[in-house]
């Protein structure tokens, strides 16, 4: 009888590390989710060996495999992108336009965007890539 009483707390204590680990993993996953923000379009950027860091707060445009554009959590058309570029250069001529395009998007789409950027006098056109 005494043996059975003393065994119960030991069993409970042996489960504690497991509970700890589960809680810690849960906290980690919850916090880790902050780093990867959900994006409107599904985009897998191309891989590159480039070491250049992304600039702070550039104008970022998402381009998915189908060539759809998105900015600030809304899908935009090419005309809206043109207007956005015009407004951005009026606001800050040194601002960078950063394109986060899917690795399988056609170069035609990339060139179209580059043309619009150039039309508006931007020289700072950057392509976001994933470091290999």
């Amino acid at each position: 009888m005494i043996l059975s009483n003393s065994r119960k707390p030991q069993e409970f204590e042996s489960v504690l590390p497991l509970i700890n680990v589960i809680f810690l993993l849960l906290i980690f996953l919850i916090l880790g989710g902050i780093f990867t923000e959900a994006e409107l379009l599904n985009v897998h950027p191309p891989e590159s060996i480039s070491e250049r860091e992304s600039q702070n707060e550039p104008i970022q445009i998402l381009v998915n495999q189908q060539g759809e554009l998105a900015h600030d959590d809304r899908v935009i058309s090419m005309n809206q992108f043109r207007q956005l570029a015009q407004l951005a250069i009026a606001d800050n001529p040194d601002a960078a336009i950063e394109i986060k395009a899917d690795q399988k998007v056609s170069m035609q789409k990339v060139f179209e965007l580059m043309d619009i950027v150039r039309e508006n006098g931007y020289a700072n056109f950057q392509l976001l890539t994933l470091k290999i």
Partner: peptide
């Protein structure tokens, strides 16, 4: 463990010009 092992996606940029 997580400090040593975890790697979040690192982005870099490539400038393009025509």
């Amino acid at each position: 463990f997580f400090m040593l092992v975890t790697e979040f996606a690192k982005f870099s940029v490539v400038s393009l010009g025509i």
